[in-house]
Design a protein around this nucleic acid. Structure first.
Lengths: 354, 354
DNA sequence: TTTAGCACTCATCCTTTCTGAGTGCTAAAG
DNA sequence: CTTTAGCACTCAGAAAGGATGAGTGCTAAA
């Protein structure tokens, strides 16, 4: 059954007032607030209906109404107005995103912090663990006769390096040989194809400097392993103390410690968000994780490039300013997607405002 | 004036009992606990003396005594017994430290998390911003005709790389030229010696591919800048909620938000710790920062190598288990120093238990 | 110097009372 | 049939009054 216009208007007023004040809303206050020219008695009747239908709840008999999860859901689906960010806000976000070196994990972490600061809720950001990666090429750079740099590049175009110091002398030709060997034997292999057997064979071919092969390949394996495992960053957990629903230290603590369990978070939250691209809102009991049953989560996903995705999200009480949070979050997520999609600046072209 | 043996014994008993229970300690309890064969009345007299002298405080007239900051100070300086870590604990620490790739920032971050988890207090770790660094060498690796990898190495032997994609074609000889140019013009220069003028000159010499010079040099500058700026990591802030002194949400919130101000933390804490190498304990009002006036901090410093240092520390209420925390912290700090001091494994020698 | 005894203090807990916001229901008005 | 005014009722939360008991300081005797 579709709700009457008036009921919707009232529901919306209840939700928005409660979001602001965190106090149950009474019929009298609504009579003024909702812009309806009816008396509080009429509103009381409507409120009774809405409660009956499950959109509102009463903390106790003589209190005003607060939205139920179902009420929030209707609000989010139909009643909420798209929030537009102020110029100042967009500028702030853009600045923060473009800052500094474009290292994946740092950017993601930074984005989470920013979102938390922007919304006053705890935030988290994570990257989906990449599927089977391989090494695309090896390079070895001789620094001096006792050290060299190994540079490996994956098929997802991530480049990592490591400096190796050695007790023994090492010549340029030796290093050349090793490089060729590495590039023949280990390129295009996934992590579990890099077997000890394979390494033995290559070590044999390497002659005297056989030990270096395993050294470099282990490094390559570490790189693959790290890239394939998903990372989770949380930020601003202390913000939950800002909100009156967490005045109870016990509650706050429970949520906080849940938030610091990276793995649980990733599991519970990555799944729903990675389904499609839009911003997802999970209200209270809609969350699968028990710890989040009276908590809401807003999620947005972004593209890291190369078909990979990440998720950025915000956690807060069900009484959350969904409109604002969703707007900010999707703006940041879009920003991230653009950032990772955008190729390196062409030479001679200094950075420019769009 | 030196305290009598008995007074010390009583003070110590008060401190240790209060650390455990967080409850003011009364004369009766002490009579049993302190292993003294005197009556509670005698103890009461002694307690009155200790209070007079400023080592103890009374929350209110009819309560037991709690240690004053001065009392904790005496305890820490003279009365506290060196705590030894259990084998299990040392093993846990060692395992956590040796895990994964040896990237400076990740290890430091990880160490902070571990300390927090180990002590149940919030922890932080930071690295002193390096002094004037320079680039020691540049290498450019051609990937394909439209992209190359820049590898830069600082005089502190940190190596960083970045992949550049270009719209224009690029040949091996061109890249060779660029490399030589970079290594002649920009090696050995500090960040502020890498002036625009210098870049103009080099760009001129580079001919057609002049844009690449500034691209790579900007990258190098980013690297230097990042290494020279100090980084702060905090972990386990939520642990403060475990302790009864922060049942008051307002208090907890204040401390938490202070802990998330990286810069303030770094300033307030790096200074005292970097003075010398021992473990430092700052009790309540001994802290310079106002926000920490009723909070204690335990600090230990470690060597990152190359003459640089970092600090790792723990924050908690003045009622803190100083003995345990100090022991764990200095063990971890030592572990970090060793970790960074230890050179790369020689080839052919697989990792081994010591 | 130590101890027993005793009156006194004061946070904490528990119960009781009071208050007021907000309700549901009824009956009259539109 | 819908809206409104009026009124009795409910109940959380604040305020106020005891009661409890741990712990003290002081005095006087051992």
């Amino acid at each position: 059954m579709e709700l009457s216009e008036r009921k919707k208007k009232i529901l919306r007023a209840v939700v928005e007032s409660y979001i602001q004040t965190a106090e149950p809303v009474g019929s009298k206050a609504l009579a003024q607030l909702a812009g309806l020219k009816v008396s509080s008695a009429t509103i009381r009747n409507e409120l009774a209906d809405l409660t009956e239908l499950g959109y509102l709840e009463q903390p106790h008999t003589s209190a005003g109404r607060i939205p139920s999860p179902q009420g929030y859901r209707l609000y989010v689906n139909e009643l909420m107005e798209e929030q537009r960010l102020s110029l100042e806000e967009t500028k702030q976000i853009n600045d923060a995103l473009h800052l500094k070196m474009r290292e994946l994990d740092k950017v993601i972490d930074q984005a989470g912090r920013m979102v938390s600061q922007l919304t006053n809720y705890p935030a988290f950001s994570l990257t989906e663990g990449a599927r089977r990666l391989t090494i695309k090429r090896f390079d070895l750079i001789l620094v001096d006769s006792a050290s060299f740099i190994a540079v490996v590049m994956t098929d997802s175009s991530v480049v990592k390096n490591k400096l190796f110091r050695l007790p023994a002398e090492l010549s340029e030709p030796q290093l050349q040989l090793l490089t060729t060997l590495l590039n023949t034997a280990f390129v295009g292999k996934t992590l579990d194809q890099l077997t000890p057997e394979l390494m033995h064979v290559a070590e044999h071919a390497a002659g005297s400097s056989y030990g270096l092969i395993s050294l470099v390949v282990s490094f390559a394996m570490e790189v693959l392993d790290e890239l394939e495992s998903s990372a989770v960053y949380t930020a601003g957990a202390s913000h939950i103390l800002d909100h009156p629903e967490y005045q109870d230290v016990g509650k706050a603590q429970k949520l906080m410690s849940y938030l610091s369990e990276d793995k649980a978070l990733a599991q519970a939250l990555a799944l729903p968000a990675l389904q499609d691209d839009s911003t997802k809102i999970l209200i209270g009991p809609e969350n699968v994780a028990d710890e989040l049953k009276d908590t809401s989560v807003v999620l947005a996903s972004y593209d890291i490039g190369d078909g990979m995705k990440g998720v950025i999200g915000v956690v807060g009480p069900t009484r959350m300013d969904y409109a604002k949070v969703a707007a900010k979050l999707s703006y940041v997520a879009d920003g991230l997607s653009k950032l990772f999609g955008q190729p390196e600046l062409p030479p001679g072209m200094p950075e420019k405002e769009e």
